[in-house]
Design a protein around this nucleic acid. Sequence first.
DNA 1: ACGCCATGTCACAGTTTGGTGACACAACTC
DNA 2: GAGTTGTGTCACCAAACTGTGACATGGCGT
Lengths: 226, 226
Amino acid sequence: MRVAGILLVEDDPSVRTALELALTRQGHSVTSYATGEEALDHIRSRRPEIAILDVMLPGIDGVEVCRRVRKLDQLPVILLTARGDDLDVVVGLEAGADDYVVKPVEPRVLDARIRAVLRRAESASSDRITFGDLVIDRGALKVTLAGKEIHLTPTELRLLLELVRHPGQVLNRRYLLRVVWDHTHIADSRLVDACVQRIRAKIEPRPAAPVFIHTVRGFGYRFSPP
Amino acid sequence: MRVAGILLVEDDPSVRTALELALTRQGHSVTSYATGEEALDHIRSRRPEIAILDVMLPGIDGVEVCRRVRKLDQLPVILLTARGDDLDVVVGLEAGADDYVVKPVEPRVLDARIRAVLRRAESASSDRITFGDLVIDRGALKVTLAGKEIHLTPTELRLLLELVRHPGQVLNRRYLLRVVWDHTHIADSRLVDACVQRIRAKIEPRPAAPVFIHTVRGFGYRFSPP
DNA sequence: ACGCCATGTCACAGTTTGGTGACACAACTC
DNA sequence: GAGTTGTGTCACCAAACTGTGACATGGCGT
Protein backbone atom coordinates (compact mmCIF):
# COMPACT_ATOMS: atom_id res chain seq x y z
CA MET A 1 0.00 0.00 0.00
CA ARG A 2 1.31 3.41 -0.89
CA VAL A 3 2.89 5.67 1.65
CA ALA A 4 1.66 9.22 1.57
CA GLY A 5 3.41 12.43 2.41
CA ILE A 6 0.98 13.96 4.84
CA LEU A 7 1.01 17.48 6.15
CA LEU A 8 -0.75 17.75 9.49
CA VAL A 9 -1.61 21.11 11.01
CA GLU A 10 -3.04 21.16 14.51
CA ASP A 11 -2.27 23.59 17.27
CA ASP A 12 -3.05 21.38 20.22
CA PRO A 13 0.28 19.61 20.85
CA SER A 14 -1.22 16.52 22.43
CA VAL A 15 -3.68 15.96 19.60
CA ARG A 16 -0.96 16.70 17.09
CA THR A 17 1.54 14.20 18.41
CA ALA A 18 -1.13 11.57 18.93
CA LEU A 19 -2.35 11.84 15.36
CA GLU A 20 1.16 12.02 13.99
CA LEU A 21 2.09 8.87 15.84
CA ALA A 22 -1.01 7.01 14.77
CA LEU A 23 -0.68 7.95 11.15
CA THR A 24 2.99 7.10 11.11
CA ARG A 25 2.13 3.69 12.53
CA GLN A 26 -0.27 3.23 9.68
CA GLY A 27 2.60 3.67 7.29
CA HIS A 28 2.21 7.29 6.35
CA SER A 29 5.00 9.78 6.32
CA VAL A 30 3.83 12.72 8.36
CA THR A 31 5.09 16.25 8.92
CA SER A 32 3.23 18.40 11.38
CA TYR A 33 2.99 22.05 12.29
CA ALA A 34 1.05 24.16 14.73
CA THR A 35 0.27 27.16 12.53
CA GLY A 36 -1.17 27.96 9.15
CA GLU A 37 1.80 30.08 8.15
CA GLU A 38 4.25 27.21 8.55
CA ALA A 39 1.86 24.96 6.72
CA LEU A 40 1.69 27.24 3.70
CA ASP A 41 5.47 27.42 3.58
CA HIS A 42 5.70 23.66 3.75
CA ILE A 43 3.16 23.22 1.01
CA ARG A 44 4.99 25.60 -1.26
CA SER A 45 8.38 24.03 -0.70
CA ARG A 46 7.70 20.38 -0.03
CA ARG A 47 4.57 19.59 -2.00
CA PRO A 48 2.89 17.05 0.28
CA GLU A 49 0.32 14.67 -1.13
CA ILE A 50 -2.41 15.69 1.23
CA ALA A 51 -3.01 18.26 3.95
CA ILE A 52 -4.98 17.69 7.13
CA LEU A 53 -5.91 20.99 8.65
CA ASP A 54 -7.48 21.85 11.93
CA VAL A 55 -10.14 24.47 11.36
CA MET A 56 -9.33 26.43 14.50
CA LEU A 57 -5.78 27.67 14.34
CA PRO A 58 -4.10 30.78 15.67
CA GLY A 59 -3.35 33.23 12.87
CA ILE A 60 -4.35 31.89 9.50
CA ASP A 61 -7.01 29.28 10.20
CA GLY A 62 -7.52 25.97 8.47
CA VAL A 63 -10.29 27.17 6.22
CA GLU A 64 -8.16 30.06 5.04
CA VAL A 65 -5.18 27.78 4.42
CA CYS A 66 -7.50 25.53 2.48
CA ARG A 67 -8.76 28.41 0.39
CA ARG A 68 -5.24 29.57 -0.43
CA VAL A 69 -4.04 26.07 -1.17
CA ARG A 70 -6.93 25.64 -3.56
CA LYS A 71 -5.79 28.70 -5.46
CA LEU A 72 -2.36 27.14 -5.85
CA ASP A 73 -3.18 23.67 -7.01
CA GLN A 74 -5.22 20.56 -6.42
CA LEU A 75 -3.63 19.46 -3.17
CA PRO A 76 -6.25 17.35 -1.43
CA VAL A 77 -7.37 18.76 1.90
CA ILE A 78 -9.15 17.24 4.87
CA LEU A 79 -10.44 19.61 7.52
CA LEU A 80 -10.57 18.73 11.18
CA THR A 81 -13.07 20.34 13.48
CA ALA A 82 -14.32 20.06 17.01
CA ARG A 83 -17.64 18.32 17.36
CA GLY A 84 -20.69 20.39 16.79
CA ASP A 85 -19.52 23.24 14.60
CA ASP A 86 -22.02 22.20 11.96
CA LEU A 87 -21.89 25.48 10.17
CA ASP A 88 -18.27 24.90 9.37
CA VAL A 89 -19.12 22.03 7.10
CA VAL A 90 -20.58 24.40 4.60
CA VAL A 91 -17.77 26.88 4.91
CA GLY A 92 -15.21 24.12 4.64
CA LEU A 93 -16.67 22.58 1.55
CA GLU A 94 -17.02 25.98 0.00
CA ALA A 95 -13.37 26.59 0.67
CA GLY A 96 -12.74 23.51 -1.44
CA ALA A 97 -11.98 20.86 1.16
CA ASP A 98 -12.25 17.28 -0.05
CA ASP A 99 -13.44 15.88 3.21
CA TYR A 100 -14.40 16.87 6.67
CA VAL A 101 -13.69 15.04 9.88
CA VAL A 102 -15.02 15.73 13.34
CA LYS A 103 -12.69 15.44 16.31
CA PRO A 104 -12.05 13.37 18.24
CA VAL A 105 -11.39 10.97 15.43
CA GLU A 106 -10.41 7.33 15.49
CA PRO A 107 -7.01 6.98 13.82
CA ARG A 108 -8.30 4.22 11.59
CA VAL A 109 -11.23 6.34 10.52
CA LEU A 110 -8.92 9.18 9.66
CA ASP A 111 -6.72 6.74 7.82
CA ALA A 112 -9.69 5.50 5.83
CA ARG A 113 -10.68 9.03 4.97
CA ILE A 114 -7.16 9.86 3.90
CA ARG A 115 -7.02 6.86 1.65
CA ALA A 116 -10.42 7.63 0.21
CA VAL A 117 -9.49 11.21 -0.54
CA LEU A 118 -6.18 10.21 -2.04
CA ARG A 119 -7.88 7.63 -4.18
CA ARG A 120 -10.42 10.16 -5.32
CA ALA A 121 -7.71 12.73 -5.92
CA GLU A 122 -5.76 10.24 -7.94
CA SER A 123 -8.63 9.48 -10.21
CA ALA A 124 -9.39 13.17 -10.37
CA SER A 125 -5.85 14.08 -11.29
CA SER A 126 -5.92 11.65 -14.09
CA ASP A 127 -7.08 13.54 -17.10
CA ARG A 128 -10.01 11.37 -17.85
CA ILE A 129 -12.90 10.32 -15.72
CA THR A 130 -15.40 7.81 -16.98
CA PHE A 131 -18.97 7.41 -15.85
CA GLY A 132 -20.63 4.82 -17.97
CA ASP A 133 -20.88 6.30 -21.43
CA LEU A 134 -19.72 9.67 -20.29
CA VAL A 135 -16.05 10.55 -20.47
CA ILE A 136 -14.76 13.80 -19.10
CA ASP A 137 -11.29 14.75 -20.20
CA ARG A 138 -10.10 17.52 -17.98
CA GLY A 139 -6.79 17.94 -19.66
CA ALA A 140 -8.36 18.59 -23.02
CA LEU A 141 -11.54 20.01 -21.46
CA LYS A 142 -13.53 17.70 -23.61
CA VAL A 143 -16.61 15.68 -22.88
CA THR A 144 -17.59 12.64 -24.87
CA LEU A 145 -20.76 10.61 -24.71
CA ALA A 146 -20.57 7.12 -26.15
CA GLY A 147 -17.53 8.18 -28.14
CA LYS A 148 -19.18 11.24 -29.62
CA GLU A 149 -17.77 14.58 -28.57
CA ILE A 150 -20.15 16.91 -26.78
CA HIS A 151 -19.64 20.62 -26.94
CA LEU A 152 -20.12 22.35 -23.61
CA THR A 153 -19.79 26.08 -23.10
CA PRO A 154 -17.32 27.31 -20.45
CA THR A 155 -19.95 27.87 -17.79
CA GLU A 156 -21.58 24.55 -18.46
CA LEU A 157 -18.22 22.83 -18.20
CA ARG A 158 -17.37 24.55 -14.94
CA LEU A 159 -20.69 23.52 -13.46
CA LEU A 160 -20.37 19.94 -14.64
CA LEU A 161 -16.84 19.66 -13.29
CA GLU A 162 -17.92 21.03 -9.95
CA LEU A 163 -20.70 18.47 -9.74
CA VAL A 164 -18.36 15.69 -10.79
CA ARG A 165 -15.82 16.74 -8.20
CA HIS A 166 -18.28 15.64 -5.53
CA PRO A 167 -19.88 12.55 -7.01
CA GLY A 168 -22.91 11.41 -5.09
CA GLN A 169 -23.12 14.58 -3.03
CA VAL A 170 -25.98 16.99 -3.17
CA LEU A 171 -24.77 20.49 -3.92
CA ASN A 172 -27.16 23.31 -3.27
CA ARG A 173 -27.79 26.23 -5.56
CA ARG A 174 -26.20 28.79 -3.31
CA TYR A 175 -23.00 26.83 -3.20
CA LEU A 176 -22.94 26.34 -6.94
CA LEU A 177 -23.64 30.01 -7.56
CA ARG A 178 -20.75 30.91 -5.34
CA VAL A 179 -18.29 28.43 -6.74
CA VAL A 180 -19.16 28.40 -10.41
CA TRP A 181 -20.41 31.95 -10.85
CA ASP A 182 -18.75 33.79 -8.01
CA HIS A 183 -22.09 35.21 -6.99
CA THR A 184 -21.95 35.79 -3.29
CA HIS A 185 -25.02 37.97 -3.02
CA ILE A 186 -27.78 36.83 -5.33
CA ALA A 187 -29.78 34.30 -3.42
CA ASP A 188 -32.62 33.49 -5.70
CA SER A 189 -32.10 32.95 -9.34
CA ARG A 190 -32.92 30.31 -11.84
CA LEU A 191 -29.43 30.48 -13.23
CA VAL A 192 -28.28 27.16 -11.91
CA ASP A 193 -31.45 25.45 -13.04
CA ALA A 194 -31.13 26.84 -16.52
CA CYS A 195 -27.52 25.79 -16.78
CA VAL A 196 -28.23 22.30 -15.49
CA GLN A 197 -30.99 22.05 -17.99
CA ARG A 198 -28.64 23.01 -20.78
CA ILE A 199 -26.08 20.44 -19.71
CA ARG A 200 -28.76 17.80 -19.50
CA ALA A 201 -29.95 18.60 -22.97
CA LYS A 202 -26.44 17.78 -24.13
CA ILE A 203 -25.39 14.80 -22.06
CA GLU A 204 -28.56 13.09 -20.94
CA PRO A 205 -30.03 10.53 -23.30
CA ARG A 206 -33.44 11.45 -21.95
CA PRO A 207 -33.28 14.83 -20.21
CA ALA A 208 -36.70 14.28 -18.68
CA ALA A 209 -35.33 11.23 -16.88
CA PRO A 210 -31.78 12.25 -16.07
CA VAL A 211 -29.16 9.61 -15.48
CA PHE A 212 -26.23 11.76 -14.46
CA ILE A 213 -27.44 14.96 -12.89
CA HIS A 214 -30.28 14.32 -10.48
CA THR A 215 -32.54 16.94 -9.01
CA VAL A 216 -33.01 16.76 -5.28
CA ARG A 217 -36.09 18.82 -4.75
CA GLY A 218 -35.71 21.47 -2.13
CA PHE A 219 -31.97 21.00 -1.87
CA GLY A 220 -30.07 21.07 -5.12
CA TYR A 221 -28.45 18.76 -7.60
CA ARG A 222 -26.46 15.59 -7.32
CA PHE A 223 -24.17 14.05 -9.87
CA SER A 224 -24.19 10.33 -9.59
CA PRO A 225 -23.24 7.96 -12.31
CA PRO A 226 -25.83 5.49 -13.59
CA MET B 1 -27.87 -7.41 6.95
CA ARG B 2 -28.02 -5.84 3.59
CA VAL B 3 -27.99 -7.85 0.42
CA ALA B 4 -25.11 -6.94 -1.80
CA GLY B 5 -24.77 -6.82 -5.53
CA ILE B 6 -21.63 -8.87 -5.99
CA LEU B 7 -19.53 -9.10 -9.10
CA LEU B 8 -17.55 -12.34 -9.25
CA VAL B 9 -14.79 -12.89 -11.77
CA GLU B 10 -13.17 -16.32 -11.96
CA ASP B 11 -12.10 -18.20 -15.05
CA ASP B 12 -12.36 -21.72 -13.69
CA PRO B 13 -15.98 -22.65 -14.37
CA SER B 14 -16.30 -25.15 -11.55
CA VAL B 15 -14.93 -22.75 -8.94
CA ARG B 16 -17.04 -19.96 -10.37
CA THR B 17 -20.34 -21.79 -10.24
CA ALA B 18 -19.55 -23.20 -6.81
CA LEU B 19 -18.83 -19.77 -5.36
CA GLU B 20 -21.75 -18.19 -7.12
CA LEU B 21 -24.07 -20.81 -5.73
CA ALA B 22 -22.67 -20.51 -2.22
CA LEU B 23 -22.86 -16.74 -2.14
CA THR B 24 -26.35 -16.73 -3.57
CA ARG B 25 -27.37 -19.14 -0.82
CA GLN B 26 -26.03 -16.67 1.69
CA GLY B 27 -28.40 -14.09 0.38
CA HIS B 28 -26.18 -12.14 -1.95
CA SER B 29 -27.09 -11.22 -5.45
CA VAL B 30 -24.24 -12.42 -7.64
CA THR B 31 -23.26 -11.88 -11.24
CA SER B 32 -20.23 -13.72 -12.51
CA TYR B 33 -17.91 -13.55 -15.48
CA ALA B 34 -14.83 -15.37 -16.68
CA THR B 35 -12.80 -12.45 -17.98
CA GLY B 36 -11.59 -9.06 -16.84
CA GLU B 37 -12.97 -7.31 -19.89
CA GLU B 38 -16.50 -8.42 -19.16
CA ALA B 39 -16.02 -7.45 -15.54
CA LEU B 40 -14.97 -3.91 -16.40
CA ASP B 41 -17.98 -3.54 -18.65
CA HIS B 42 -20.24 -4.77 -15.90
CA ILE B 43 -18.72 -2.43 -13.36
CA ARG B 44 -19.15 0.54 -15.63
CA SER B 45 -22.71 -0.24 -16.53
CA ARG B 46 -24.13 -1.93 -13.46
CA ARG B 47 -22.22 -0.47 -10.52
CA PRO B 48 -22.01 -3.48 -8.22
CA GLU B 49 -21.38 -2.96 -4.54
CA ILE B 50 -18.29 -5.10 -4.39
CA ALA B 51 -16.07 -7.01 -6.81
CA ILE B 52 -14.40 -10.33 -6.13
CA LEU B 53 -11.62 -10.90 -8.60
CA ASP B 54 -9.45 -13.87 -9.28
CA VAL B 55 -5.89 -12.72 -9.67
CA MET B 56 -5.08 -15.11 -12.49
CA LEU B 57 -7.28 -14.39 -15.44
CA PRO B 58 -6.77 -14.68 -19.15
CA GLY B 59 -6.37 -11.25 -20.73
CA ILE B 60 -6.74 -8.45 -18.21
CA ASP B 61 -5.92 -10.03 -14.85
CA GLY B 62 -7.55 -9.37 -11.50
CA VAL B 63 -4.90 -6.99 -10.26
CA GLU B 64 -5.17 -4.92 -13.39
CA VAL B 65 -8.97 -4.84 -13.14
CA CYS B 66 -8.56 -3.76 -9.54
CA ARG B 67 -6.19 -0.98 -10.51
CA ARG B 68 -8.54 0.32 -13.15
CA VAL B 69 -11.55 0.04 -10.90
CA ARG B 70 -9.73 2.10 -8.32
CA LYS B 71 -9.28 4.86 -10.82
CA LEU B 72 -13.00 4.93 -11.41
CA ASP B 73 -14.37 5.04 -7.92
CA GLN B 74 -14.48 3.54 -4.48
CA LEU B 75 -15.81 0.14 -5.40
CA PRO B 76 -14.54 -2.30 -2.77
CA VAL B 77 -12.47 -5.16 -4.16
CA ILE B 78 -11.49 -8.55 -2.80
CA LEU B 79 -8.80 -10.49 -4.64
CA LEU B 80 -8.75 -14.27 -4.89
CA THR B 81 -5.55 -16.16 -5.41
CA ALA B 82 -4.28 -19.72 -5.46
CA ARG B 83 -2.46 -20.83 -2.33
CA GLY B 84 1.14 -19.85 -2.10
CA ASP B 85 1.52 -16.86 -4.40
CA ASP B 86 2.69 -14.73 -1.50
CA LEU B 87 4.16 -12.08 -3.70
CA ASP B 88 0.76 -11.25 -5.03
CA VAL B 89 -0.37 -9.98 -1.66
CA VAL B 90 1.82 -6.95 -1.94
CA VAL B 91 0.94 -6.31 -5.55
CA GLY B 92 -2.72 -6.71 -4.79
CA LEU B 93 -2.76 -4.35 -1.89
CA GLU B 94 -0.78 -1.85 -3.86
CA ALA B 95 -3.38 -2.04 -6.57
CA GLY B 96 -5.88 -0.93 -3.96
CA ALA B 97 -7.61 -4.16 -3.02
CA ASP B 98 -9.48 -4.07 0.26
CA ASP B 99 -8.89 -7.67 1.12
CA TYR B 100 -7.16 -10.73 -0.08
CA VAL B 101 -8.38 -14.31 0.09
CA VAL B 102 -6.50 -17.50 -0.65
CA LYS B 103 -8.22 -20.30 -2.55
CA PRO B 104 -9.67 -22.71 -1.83
CA VAL B 105 -11.91 -20.70 0.42
CA GLU B 106 -14.77 -21.74 2.65
CA PRO B 107 -17.90 -19.95 1.47
CA ARG B 108 -18.67 -18.74 4.95
CA VAL B 109 -15.18 -17.33 5.29
CA LEU B 110 -15.56 -15.49 2.02
CA ASP B 111 -18.95 -14.28 3.14
CA ALA B 112 -17.47 -12.93 6.36
CA ARG B 113 -14.75 -11.13 4.45
CA ILE B 114 -17.28 -9.62 2.10
CA ARG B 115 -19.37 -8.33 4.97
CA ALA B 116 -16.31 -6.96 6.71
CA VAL B 117 -15.16 -5.12 3.62
CA LEU B 118 -18.62 -3.74 2.94
CA ARG B 119 -18.92 -2.59 6.52
CA ARG B 120 -15.57 -0.88 6.35
CA ALA B 121 -16.41 0.71 3.05
CA GLU B 122 -19.67 1.93 4.44
CA SER B 123 -18.21 3.48 7.56
CA ALA B 124 -15.40 5.00 5.57
CA SER B 125 -17.75 6.85 3.31
CA SER B 126 -18.38 9.84 5.40
CA ASP B 127 -21.88 10.93 5.95
CA ARG B 128 -23.73 7.71 6.30
CA ILE B 129 -25.51 6.58 9.39
CA THR B 130 -26.93 3.12 9.68
CA PHE B 131 -29.72 2.02 11.96
CA GLY B 132 -30.46 -1.58 11.22
CA ASP B 133 -32.02 -1.67 7.80
CA LEU B 134 -32.21 2.07 7.60
CA VAL B 135 -29.32 3.95 6.03
CA ILE B 136 -29.29 7.70 5.98
CA ASP B 137 -26.72 9.34 3.78
CA ARG B 138 -26.38 12.94 4.78
CA GLY B 139 -24.13 13.87 1.89
CA ALA B 140 -26.21 12.36 -0.84
CA LEU B 141 -29.42 13.14 1.06
CA LYS B 142 -30.57 9.64 0.39
CA VAL B 143 -32.46 7.29 2.63
CA THR B 144 -32.48 3.58 2.00
CA LEU B 145 -34.45 0.89 3.74
CA ALA B 146 -33.10 -2.63 3.30
CA GLY B 147 -31.23 -1.45 0.25
CA LYS B 148 -34.26 0.12 -1.39
CA GLU B 149 -34.19 3.86 -1.83
CA ILE B 150 -36.96 5.73 -0.06
CA HIS B 151 -38.12 9.01 -1.43
CA LEU B 152 -38.64 11.65 1.22
CA THR B 153 -39.86 15.16 0.54
CA PRO B 154 -37.69 18.08 1.67
CA THR B 155 -39.58 18.72 4.88
CA GLU B 156 -39.75 15.07 5.75
CA LEU B 157 -36.04 14.76 5.20
CA ARG B 158 -35.25 17.80 7.31
CA LEU B 159 -37.39 16.47 10.12
CA LEU B 160 -35.89 13.00 9.95
CA LEU B 161 -32.37 14.39 9.92
CA GLU B 162 -33.15 16.51 12.93
CA LEU B 163 -34.50 13.52 14.83
CA VAL B 164 -31.54 11.40 13.83
CA ARG B 165 -29.14 14.10 14.92
CA HIS B 166 -30.27 13.42 18.47
CA PRO B 167 -30.78 9.67 18.65
CA GLY B 168 -32.51 8.57 21.83
CA GLN B 169 -33.51 12.11 22.77
CA VAL B 170 -37.07 13.25 23.00
CA LEU B 171 -37.64 16.35 20.89
CA ASN B 172 -40.76 18.36 21.56
CA ARG B 173 -43.02 19.82 18.92
CA ARG B 174 -42.15 23.43 19.63
CA TYR B 175 -38.48 22.71 19.13
CA LEU B 176 -39.08 20.81 15.92
CA LEU B 177 -41.34 23.53 14.59
CA ARG B 178 -38.65 26.07 15.26
CA VAL B 179 -35.77 24.11 13.81
CA VAL B 180 -37.38 22.36 10.88
CA TRP B 181 -40.07 24.88 9.97
CA ASP B 182 -38.72 28.13 11.26
CA HIS B 183 -42.02 28.71 13.02
CA THR B 184 -41.38 30.61 16.19
CA HIS B 185 -44.97 31.58 16.83
CA ILE B 186 -47.40 28.84 15.97
CA ALA B 187 -47.62 26.67 19.02
CA ASP B 188 -50.35 24.21 18.40
CA SER B 189 -50.87 22.42 15.17
CA ARG B 190 -50.96 18.95 13.82
CA LEU B 191 -48.07 19.84 11.54
CA VAL B 192 -45.34 17.87 13.21
CA ASP B 193 -47.62 14.93 13.80
CA ALA B 194 -48.68 14.85 10.19
CA CYS B 195 -45.11 14.99 9.00
CA VAL B 196 -44.00 12.26 11.38
CA GLN B 197 -46.88 10.20 10.18
CA ARG B 198 -45.81 10.68 6.60
CA ILE B 199 -42.27 9.64 7.38
CA ARG B 200 -43.48 6.60 9.26
CA ALA B 201 -45.62 5.56 6.34
CA LYS B 202 -42.44 5.49 4.29
CA ILE B 203 -39.83 4.01 6.59
CA GLU B 204 -41.69 2.01 9.19
CA PRO B 205 -42.46 -1.59 8.31
CA ARG B 206 -45.59 -1.30 10.47
CA PRO B 207 -46.44 2.37 11.00
CA ALA B 208 -48.88 1.44 13.74
CA ALA B 209 -46.01 -0.05 15.75
CA PRO B 210 -43.12 2.24 14.93
CA VAL B 211 -39.59 0.96 15.24
CA PHE B 212 -37.64 4.11 14.50
CA ILE B 213 -39.69 7.16 15.45
CA HIS B 214 -41.39 6.71 18.79
CA THR B 215 -44.12 8.87 20.21
CA VAL B 216 -43.55 10.07 23.74
CA ARG B 217 -46.96 11.08 24.86
CA GLY B 218 -47.11 14.57 26.24
CA PHE B 219 -43.58 15.42 25.14
CA GLY B 220 -42.80 14.76 21.54
CA TYR B 221 -40.93 12.27 19.43
CA ARG B 222 -37.81 10.24 19.87
CA PHE B 223 -35.73 8.58 17.22
CA SER B 224 -34.17 5.44 18.51
CA PRO B 225 -32.96 2.54 16.48
CA PRO B 226 -34.59 -0.85 16.95
C1' DA C 1 -66.09 1.56 32.20
C1' DC C 2 -65.96 6.29 31.05
C1' DG C 3 -64.48 10.51 29.38
C1' DC C 4 -60.78 13.47 28.26
C1' DC C 5 -57.19 14.76 25.66
C1' DA C 6 -53.05 13.78 22.99
C1' DT C 7 -52.09 11.83 18.82
C1' DG C 8 -53.12 9.37 14.32
C1' DT C 9 -55.21 9.72 9.85
C1' DC C 10 -56.80 11.60 5.61
C1' DA C 11 -58.14 14.34 1.69
C1' DC C 12 -57.66 18.51 -0.64
C1' DA C 13 -56.58 22.97 -2.24
C1' DG C 14 -53.24 26.52 -2.27
C1' DT C 15 -48.49 27.14 -2.75
C1' DT C 16 -43.90 26.15 -4.12
C1' DT C 17 -40.60 24.30 -7.09
C1' DG C 18 -38.23 23.12 -11.02
C1' DG C 19 -38.49 22.08 -16.21
C1' DT C 20 -38.81 24.31 -20.48
C1' DG C 21 -38.61 27.33 -24.32
C1' DA C 22 -38.29 32.07 -25.75
C1' DC C 23 -35.76 36.05 -25.79
C1' DA C 24 -32.55 39.97 -25.09
C1' DC C 25 -28.22 41.32 -24.84
C1' DA C 26 -23.24 41.01 -24.58
C1' DA C 27 -19.06 39.15 -26.36
C1' DC C 28 -16.70 37.45 -29.85
C1' DT C 29 -15.61 36.10 -34.76
C1' DC C 30 -15.13 36.94 -39.35
C1' DG D 1 -20.92 45.61 -39.23
C1' DA D 2 -23.22 41.22 -39.65
C1' DG D 3 -23.50 36.94 -37.95
C1' DT D 4 -22.63 33.58 -34.27
C1' DT D 5 -22.29 32.01 -29.75
C1' DG D 6 -22.78 32.26 -24.80
C1' DT D 7 -25.35 33.72 -20.86
C1' DG D 8 -28.72 35.61 -17.84
C1' DT D 9 -33.87 36.35 -17.28
C1' DC D 10 -38.52 35.64 -17.69
C1' DA D 11 -42.99 33.62 -17.98
C1' DC D 12 -45.63 29.70 -18.10
C1' DC D 13 -46.85 25.04 -16.80
C1' DA D 14 -47.00 20.65 -14.68
C1' DA D 15 -45.87 18.26 -10.86
C1' DA D 16 -44.77 17.94 -6.25
C1' DC D 17 -45.26 19.43 -1.73
C1' DT D 18 -47.43 21.00 2.39
C1' DG D 19 -50.53 23.06 5.80
C1' DT D 20 -55.01 22.53 7.51
C1' DG D 21 -59.01 21.03 9.71
C1' DA D 22 -62.27 17.58 10.59
C1' DC D 23 -62.65 13.34 12.35
C1' DA D 24 -60.97 8.76 14.24
C1' DT D 25 -58.33 6.42 17.53
C1' DG D 26 -56.28 5.12 21.58
C1' DG D 27 -53.93 5.82 26.09
C1' DC D 28 -54.55 7.12 30.67
C1' DG D 29 -56.45 8.69 34.98
C1' DT D 30 -60.52 8.40 37.70
